[in-house]
Amino acid sequence: MFQRLDLGHGIGLRTKHFARFLAEAPPVDWVEVVTENFMADGGRPIAVLEKVRRDMPVVLHGVSLSIGSLDPLSEPYLAALERLVSRIDPAMVTDHLCWGSHRGQYVHDLLPLPYTEESLAHVASRVSAVQERLGRRILLENPSSYVAFRDSTMAEWEFLSELSRRSGCGILLDVNNVYVSARNFGFDPIDYLDGIDPDQVGQFHLAGHSDKGRYLLDTHGEPVPPAVWALYREALRRFGRVPSLVEWDDHIPPLDEVVAQSRKAAAIEAEELAPVLRRAS
């Protein structure tokens, strides 16, 4: 069983808010950072991160591990990740169920995989290799998707669950991504939640998206919309108390607004789990 941490409610640490984090410890339980932005060995980003780490837990969230790529795992990347893990001692190390490099070129995007047995075996072996290298379990996030593959033989939630079972990795369940992909492909997001083993979920992500008319785009540039809050409630009912993070990466508002979203997540969690806690007591 995946050992779930009790971190509470966090936000993504972004450059725009560095000054506030340097001056004080804002009222959040933890922060997540984009791993690659802190891999440089010196300069302001890593200095800020070390200060923040003294104040609260930090989660490393990568975008370039490219776990699904057929390129060999990048040795320079793993070495830099290893150094950062050793320097920061993060609460979790996470990345995405995707690929983003091919023939040595990086597209800097989270490209989805065809959900086949071949992909599953490939990704599971690479997750095991990364976990062995880091000496710790990693968590992988479900991507938001706009394409589906003719060759897929299983749903994303089946793939992710089986990957977690085979490799021992945890699942970072991005509730917004579930909603975005469900709208883009016409499946019921509740089926997705029901298909995931609660014991495998180690973290939730919450974010906003843009409605482009014919599809939803995962922009992280808006407040969490009502439909995603509603799905978050469904997730809480199924998975219980899970460390939750609000992501905001585009049109980033003042810190207080992001923190308010995180507090809202905490309030919703308290509402949803109160009956459970009352029953338990």
């Binding site: 597209v107 995007d109 593959f149 599809y215």
Partner: peptide
């Protein structure tokens, strides 16, 4: 290789990724 829908054909879906690639 890809599946589309009447509302959003496969070519338009792949184009989303191409536009994001350049933009990013």
């Amino acid at each position: 290789g890809f599946l589309g829908t009447d509302e959003l054909p496969a070519t338009d879906r792949v184009a989303i990724y191409r536009n994001m690639y350049i933009g990013r």
